[in-house]
Write a protein that binds this DNA or RNA. Structure first.
Lengths: 135, 135
DNA sequence: CCGCATCACTTGCAAAATGCAACCTATATT
DNA sequence: AATATAGGTTGCATTTTGCAAGTGATGCGG
């Protein structure tokens, strides 16, 4: 798929401009979810065919790494790669926007302060707590 | 339309999680475009029915204000409201991500520095240069 | 090691969103 | 008056999404 333009905003939207991809990354980055069932159980109720498709795309794009769950042979383990974790600032900015402009959105404790202070440090700390996959 | 969840990221995605809405805001915020023809002329080649639909949604959501163009009675003038301009940080973060992670994305001069320095000041300066609508 | 539950899907089909091309109306220009 | 331009709308084909049901592999309790 050849991009519609060379605008970096457009490129980002061609990858993540849908209603589900970033929610999966959110679950990995902020809720530490790693399994299909875990993503399926999120409040937004993604359909399994869409979830399957998005995980495949995220894996193909190198944002997510998939392997067997070492604690349950039936389960697969999905983890962010460093490339996937690079979207945390985008997710955070969207969370901040939603929190300040949407009526019935939850407040994420500490988010506003984090986004005002040393973001880089906060993101690094968050990433350090994640069990990233490496390729 | 009742939101799928009260997650602020989800709420933001329900409003802007499509391939076009943020591009229109981009054109207003960064390219200073104000007319239907102007948006239509952008590199991504949006179809006119989609453009019409997105402008209507953005107006209904209070992100964009529409009036007659004072310099051409045939044209309508679309301008960001303050609420619409509040998405500039999200757009900028997406631009930064695209610029650093996508192969063939353009580089926006000064963006990386801006995003490392005093963002708030940079965003304020940008907004000051825009002719915002004010409802 | 048998039966049942769970995990990660896939399939089929209906509904909605998107994309394309043609057409239309109001205003401006010559 | 004729023509061009701005901002749409309409009809239709294609694509994406969503829902429900079904499938194969693995684990677990007896």
């Amino acid at each position: 798929m050849t991009p519609r333009s060379s605008c970096p905003i457009n490129g980002t939207l061609e990858l993540f401009g849908d209603r589900w991809s970033l929610l999966i990354l959110r679950d990995m980055a902020f809720a530490r979810k790693t399994t299909f069932k875990g993503f399926e159980a999120s409040a937004e109720k993604i359909a399994t065919n869409i979830l399957s498709d998005r995980l495949a795309r995220l894996e193909a794009g190198g944002f997510v790494h998939k392997d067997r769950d070492p604690e349950d042979g039936r389960a697969r383990r999905y983890r962010l790669t460093r490339k996937g974790a690079s979207l945390i600032p985008v997710l955070s900015e969207m969370a901040l926007w939603g929190e300040t402009h949407l009526r019935d959105a939850d407040t994420i404790p500490g988010l506003k302060d984090t986004m005002k202070g040393d973001r880089q440090a906060a993101f690094s700390a968050l990433i350090a707590q994640l069990d990233l996959a490496d390729p």
